[in-house]
Every structure is written in structure tokens, then in C-alpha cells.
Amino acid sequence: MSAAMCAFILTLSSALGPTVVSGVLGAPTHVRLTSYDMNLVLMWDPPEGPASSIVYSTQFKSSVSLDFDKVGCVNISNLECDLSRLNTIFQYAKYTGRVRAQSGTESSAWMESNPITLDKDTVISSPDVSLSSNGAAIEVSIKDPVFMISALREVYHSATYNITYWQHGQREKARSKSNIQQSRVVLNDLDPWTKYCVQVQIIITDRNPSKPSAAVCESTTSKAEAPWVAAVVTFGVVAMSVALVVVAVLYRKHISHFLCPKDALPQHFKEYLLAPPNSSMYLAMRNSHPPDEIYNQVSVIADGRTPEEPLEAAGSKQPDAT
């Protein structure tokens, strides 16, 4: 073969690229590493061109490792692999993933993803918000999103809430409260008998805030009493109860003597009550004898009649009167 022909073949091969080489499997495309609420998911698109029975294997490495020393998913047909379920993920580490395609005995080249640092790049979802009306005030209850690794307050110690609220239909006049750390907040600068809507967002220093929550609405009712009124009433009741207990303990003997007096009767009362009665009627009744009872003796004599004999026949004979 002449040198000119060899040069022509090499030039043509370079121009057409590796796709003309048979038996080489295309690699996955658009490989990216994502994190949502502190999880770690490697995603990709299938190789370009026709292919059948393709499976994928993944690997990943952390910032403390130079090589891809951790195995992810093996021989899967899905286009994503949840690496956070392997229980080897640390919330402050930096990670990079890679994936390759396999079809029969053919394997593609490894394709690496973008690196991400979990605590800086994870997308934080919106908090859960609920409202309860208390007179002319509304209490806002906030619940943090659930993280795959650790918890929001353990990873972001300085996290605060930004609360935005407005009258229903007047979003352009919204007011806000920022740098809130409590999970329960009372909005008390509201009008009675008015519907308000509330939206909450998590704010973290040196990173993007969370997604805002969905707007939640609640109506106020009549103007509530000032909190100090209930506090004063409660304090008064408690103070009175304590005072009564103290008085009862200190003066228990006096109270017992008052309720159950033990004073003795005067001596002349005792002599009068213990002296025998001296009335004439009482003496006559005591010395009198019981009257004699008047009675007649009765004797019962059998008449000799049978039980079947009529009473008239037996009673026809009367004893003679003396």
C-alpha cells in the first residue's frame, strides 16, 4: 500500500471520529450529581445511538479520596442511582460520581459528574406551615423539612425563618418578620375579623435560601383580651389559694376549737340536770302499782263430731246456761 493511500485512510478515520468503529458502546451523557434535602443522587441520560439491553454501573468518591473507591449501583437499568442510601455519606464532604454503560460484553468509558459539596449545594425544600387563630392574633407553627442525613438544625446552626404575611388579596402590601428562630410565632398586629395569608422561607448564611412554602390562610376573630389580664387573674387566684393554706396551717388549733368547741357546762347546769325529779306527778307514777287485769277462764271441750259432719248438726246442742 502506498504512503499516499495510508495517509488518506488515517485522515478519513480522524474526520469521521470513533463512532465509525464497530464494537464500541457509547457512554452515558449529561451525567450530573444532585442533592435535595441532603441526599446524593447520580443521574444521567442514555448513550446516543441505538442500543439494547443496556445496564449501568456507578462509582463515587469523596474529597478525601483521589480514586473512585466507593461502589454505587451495579447493573441497573434505571437512569439514576441514590448514593445516599449506602450509609457512607457525610454532610460536609465534597463528592463526585461517574457512570458507565454495559451491553453484553461491551462496556463504555466512564463519564464523570460535576462535584458537589452537600452542605453548600443541597437544595432545601420549603418548610411545613400551619396556622391557628387566637382572637385577633394568628399563631404560625413551622416544621423543618426532613433531611436524608442528619437534621436541618444540626447542619445549619444559624438557620432562621423569614415570615411574610398579608391580608387576603393584598399581596402587594405584605409585611414580614425576619431572623426568627422559634418554630412558633404569634402575629398580633392584625385586624379582627380579617383573613390573612402566610408564607415562610428558611434563610441560611452564605448559601441560597430554601424554597418558600405554599401560602396558608387563616381568619382572625374578635379582639382578644390583653395577655396581662389573664396573667393578673391567674396570679390573684394562686396568691389567694396560698394565703388560705398558710392561714389554715398557722391557725389550725383556733379553727378547730371554733368548729368543735370543748367548753364545759356551768356547775349549776350540771347540778340541775343531774338532780332527781321531784314533781308530784312523777312521784305518783313511780310509786303507783300496775292495775289488776280482769280476765275469765275458758275451757275447750271436744264434741266428738267427725270432720265431715256439718257444723249445723254439731252446733244444735247448746250447753245449759247456769
Rank of each mutant, 00 (worst) to 15 (best):
K270E: 11
R171Y: 05
N114L: 04
D45Y: 08
W44I: 05
V140H: 01
I180Y: 01
F258E: 02
R175S: 15
A51N: 10
D82T: 07
V247P: 01
M281K: 09
T164Q: 05
P277I: 05
H157P: 03
K94Q: 10
E308T: 12
P192L: 09
V246M: 13
L259K: 05
N114R: 08
E293S: 11
K317I: 07
I89T: 14
K61L: 12
I202Q: 00
A224S: 14
L118F: 03
A15K: 10
E48D: 08
A4L: 02
N296I: 06
L283Y: 08
S132C: 03
T164N: 01
V229S: 03
T122K: 12
D191V: 08
E80F: 15
I203Q: 13
A321R: 11
A109R: 13
E172I: 05
L259C: 05
A136N: 15
P47A: 04
V129R: 05
D119V: 07
L187E: 01
P192G: 05
E154M: 10
I149P: 03
P115W: 09
G236N: 13
A275Y: 06
V249M: 14
R153P: 04
D128T: 13
P46G: 09
P28W: 03
P261L: 02
C6P: 00
A3C: 03
I180E: 15
S103K: 00
K211N: 07
E154D: 15
T34I: 10
H289I: 06
M148D: 15
L250I: 12
P277L: 02
L42C: 09
S132Y: 08
P277K: 06
Y165M: 01
V186N: 03
T122L: 04
H254S: 10
L259T: 06
S132P: 01
V123G: 06
A314S: 14
E308M: 05
A224P: 02
T34H: 13
R100L: 03
V300I: 15
M38P: 02
V242M: 13
G304A: 05
S222E: 15
Y251L: 06
C197V: 01
L33G: 03
T160H: 03
A27R: 13
D320H: 07
D144K: 03
C6Q: 11
L79H: 13
E271M: 08
E308I: 01
V229Q: 14
E218F: 04
E312M: 07
S280P: 02
Y295W: 11
S299K: 13
D121I: 05
D45W: 08
D144V: 06
S2N: 07
V246G: 10
N78G: 10
A302C: 06
G26A: 15
V186Q: 08
L79Q: 09
L25W: 11
M1N: 03
H168A: 09
A93D: 15
S57M: 04
V198H: 00
Q267Y: 11
P192M: 06
A243M: 09
H168V: 04
E139N: 13
W110H: 07
V99I: 06
K262R: 10
Y56W: 13
R252C: 07
